[in-house]
């Protein structure tokens, strides 16, 4: 069965690459204080636990081993606007607060199985769609307004996933990536060994 939720933005990014013009404006970004801010130690620990739970090691390295929290922390300091920093740290704080409220323990202190169970429920609630008010801006096909229960969490999860699937570990385990494919082969037979090919440009 086809998954009901469509990666509209990702698809459109690639669509626009092909089209040879537009897409993702930075116009919703507000200039912030400009002062780099680092993730505090307790949030770093929480981020490690979150990344490790979201994308655990299997027979290949997971997000923690791939260094995703380290890269995310660097992006928090050097890439994120004040608004994005607040969204990311807010999402982490809400995750931890919910864990403490519901389990009596910090998220990072939970046993692995409990963490996974808690995160599944938290993730489901945080990403629950929220209908937009009729007069609220909807964005465009290319940049739809994300309307879920915890928009900051949506940003956090997406960033962890994107960083994992841009890491060498992620790209050579679940996916396949060749920087210089050489030939274009328009039709190959799918086998049990076939892995989706990551693409950072067109197709």
């Amino acid at each position: 069965m086809m998954a009901p939720m469509i990666d509209r933005r990702g698809l459109m990014q690639r669509a626009m690459l092909l089209l040879g013009a537009t897409a993702l404006a930075g116009c919703d970004l507000l200039p912030g204080s400009g002062a780099p801010a680092a993730l505090a130690a307790d949030r770093l620990k929480l981020l490690d636990a979150y990344a490790d739970t979201l994308l655990p090691a299997t027979d290949t390295p997971g997000a923690l081993q791939a260094g995703v929290p380290r890269v995310l922390a660097q992006m928090y300091a050097d890439w994120a606007s004040a608004e994005t920093r607040e969204a990311l740290s807010g999402a982490l704080d809400r995750l931890d607060a919910a864990a403490r409220r519901q389990t009596g323990k910090a998220f990072a202190e939970l046993a692995a199985a409990d963490r996974l169970a808690f995160l599944a429920a938290h993730d489901k609630a945080a990403l629950a769609p929220v209908p937009l008010a009729p007069d609220a801006p909807k964005g465009s096909l290319f940049e739809p307004v994300i309307s879920v229960a915890d928009v900051g969490y949506h940003k956090l999860k997406e960033l962890v996933l994107v960083l994992f699937y841009a890491s060498e570990a992620g790209l050579t385990s679940d996916l396949s990536y060749e920087h210089v494919p050489g030939k274009w082969q328009p039709s190959i037979k799918v086998t049990p060994e076939t892995r989706p090919a990551a693409a950072f440009g067109i197709f």
């Binding site: 990666d7 990702g10 739970t53 996933l161 699937y165």
Partner: peptide, 14 residues
């Protein structure tokens, strides 16, 4: 389609 639609589904973790 790639990984994103599955991974961003509410409740998809681990």
């Amino acid at each position: 389609a790639g990984w994103k639609q599955g991974a961003m589904t509410p409740g998809a973790v681990g």
